[in-house]
């Protein structure tokens, strides 16, 4: 289904905005229409952060996502805020190491990933976002893993490429 609307949310500094950017670049790689829109406002370091990404085979309307086909959350406030935004039958991905409550929805698919622990095993907690992104792409098939890796190579920092790649693959594996 080449039209998906995704919300990434967590704390500032977790790489929420970059997850969205890499996904958008992967969509561009596949010549789809893409948009990326950050929450902008009185945000500050350590505060909450989110972004909306739309990938579609038809022209994109508003870049702001309210009815998300998938939501990825990396903290409790984000779960509280965005759980209700997932469309019926949509996907919710949770970093279960950081979110200390169970989701309430029963009409959506939920994947809980201990992303912090997996990331630490690979080498750094900082790449937990990539673990979650790997799971999202595996589950939604919105872009291919190849395109995502290409986006990472072209637009990410070279010294982190191998580490990021490993994180994406471990996330994908977890979601399989």
């Amino acid at each position: 289904m080449p039209h998906q609307e995704i919300i990434f949310a967590g704390f500032g500094g977790q790489g929420i905005l970059s997850m969205g950017k890499f996904l958008a670049y992967a969509g561009l790689e596949e010549e789809l229409n893409v948009s990326w829109f950050p929450s902008y406002g009185p945000e500050m370091r350590g505060g909450t952060s989110n972004c909306s990404v739309i990938i579609s085979d038809s022209p994109i309307g508003a870049p702001i996502v309210t009815d998300a086909t998938a939501v990825v959350v990396m903290n409790r406030p984000s779960l509280d805020k965005f759980e209700s935004h997932v469309v019926k039958g949509g996907l919710l991905i949770i970093d279960s190491d950081l979110v200390n409550r169970e989701p309430e929805r029963t009409d959506i698919e939920i994947i809980k990933i201990p992303a912090q622990r997996i990331a630490e095993e690979i080498g750094s907690k900082k790449i937990a976002n990539m673990v979650l992104l790997g799971a999202l792409v595996e589950k939604t098939k919105i872009v291919s893993m190849e395109s995502l890796l290409k986006a990472l190579k072209e637009h990410g920092k070279e010294q982190f490429y191998e580490l990021n790649k490993k994180a994406l693959e471990r996330g994908a594996e977890y979601a399989r």
Binding site: N33, V34, Y40, I60
Partner: peptide, 10 residues
């Protein structure tokens, strides 16, 4: 508007 200024597009 703020949407156009803040959004990324190809």
């Amino acid at each position: 508007d703020g949407m156009l200024g803040q959004m990324m597009e190809p």
